[in-house]
């Protein structure tokens, strides 16, 4: 091995070791756990059970509802983030007075960690003291206070608490999306827009025929990151509603946490973890395949 190679391996080693110890190893342990019975309170009964845990959790209605909700949460939140970010990125990309102020405002949510954001929004969305409710009541828009986090009426898979948490997630995730898209926008040559102008394209046409196609690589990365993060999201749902009311805002990560650390059923929690792993793997594989397709062209 040449000296240069040794040096390279040495430089990479620390990060690799950390990833292995803190990332890969626990993941493998957890996957193994999902195929064993693992009851903390009754350790004599622990042993290999194959797919039993998975069968058990899939037979639990609450769990299946949780999977559905995880998917709905993720898709809806990502949809809104991307759409709004596409719009806002264009806005702050343009030249106008007060742009710096607007930019600061838009990026503020980035400096707020999700847990802190949840704490703030719990207060803002508390039915009794919410300033939003107060304002809407005063303006005569509503008659009864909106129970943002506790109203259990549903329309299909949607409910008010779900939409509330999605709104907070979108708020928290916008800055990153905007930064990505802004970077992408600024790498689109102005002359393409001018050519489109000459070709008779209006604002929408320019967006669909120039902006979107050229943003594709950026959007792909963004979507991949968001989906992988989204399926495993924990903080907001746990802090703001704990999965309620009536399990309406439960997501896989929260369910897993409760199952493991409250009910002490680590085997079922591990099975849930395994399912999350499968979901994120699908996203990852899809992303890699799409990237490879681009390269092959």
């Amino acid at each position: 091995m040449s000296e240069k190679n040794v040096f390279c391996y040495l430089m990479v080693a620390p990060a690799l070791v950390i990833t292995l110890i803190l990332g890969i190893y626990p993941m493998i342990r957890s996957m193994v756990m999902s195929f064993r019975s693992y009851d903390l309170l009754n350790q004599d009964k622990n042993g290999w059970v194959g797919l039993d845990n998975y069968r058990q959790v899939m037979a639990d209605d609450r769990f299946v509802q949780t999977i559905n909700q995880t998917v709905v949460f993720t898709f809806v939140a990502i949809f809104f983030v991307v759409v709004i970010a596409l719009f806002l990125a264009q806005v702050i990309n343009a030249e106008f007075r007060g742009r710096a102020v607007l930019r600061t405002l838009i990026f503020t949510p980035w400096f707020v960690p999700p847990v802190v954001a949840s704490a703030i929004w719990i207060w803002l969305l508390n039915a009794n003291v919410s300033p939003i409710n107060h304002f809407l009541l005063e303006a005569g828009v509503i008659e009864r206070k909106i129970r943002f986090l506790t109203d259990s009426d549903t329309w299909g898979p949607f409910s008010i608490p779900m939409m509330s948490i999605i709104a907070v997630r979108v708020w928290n995730g916008l800055p990153i999306a905007i930064v990505f898209i802004l970077a992408g926008l600024q790498s689109i040559p102005k002359s393409l827009y001018e050519a489109a102008d000459m070709d008779g394209a209006g604002t929408f046409s320019k967006f669909f025929h120039v902006t979107l196609p050229l943003l594709r690589p950026v959007l792909l990365v963004l979507l991949a990151l968001f989906f992988m993060n989204g399926f495993g999201h924990f903080e907001m749902n746990y802090v703001m509603t704990g999965g309620g009311p009536r399990n309406l805002t439960n997501v896989l990560a929260v369910w897993t946490y409760q199952e493991g650390f409250q009910f002490l059923r680590f085997d079922r929690a591990a099975a849930a973890g395994g399912i999350v792993l499968m979901m994120t793997s699908v996203v990852a594989v899809l992303y890699i395949w799409l990237q490879a397709k681009d390269v092959r062209k």
Binding site: N126, V239, T241
Partner: peptide, 19 residues
């Protein structure tokens, strides 16, 4: 208040506020 059964319900400020 039926919402008191949900997570995140902060009772102390409400009590102090007289609610």
């Amino acid at each position: 208040d039926i919402d008191s059964f949900e997570k995140g319900y902060e009772m102390l400020p409400l009590f102090v506020d007289g609610q």
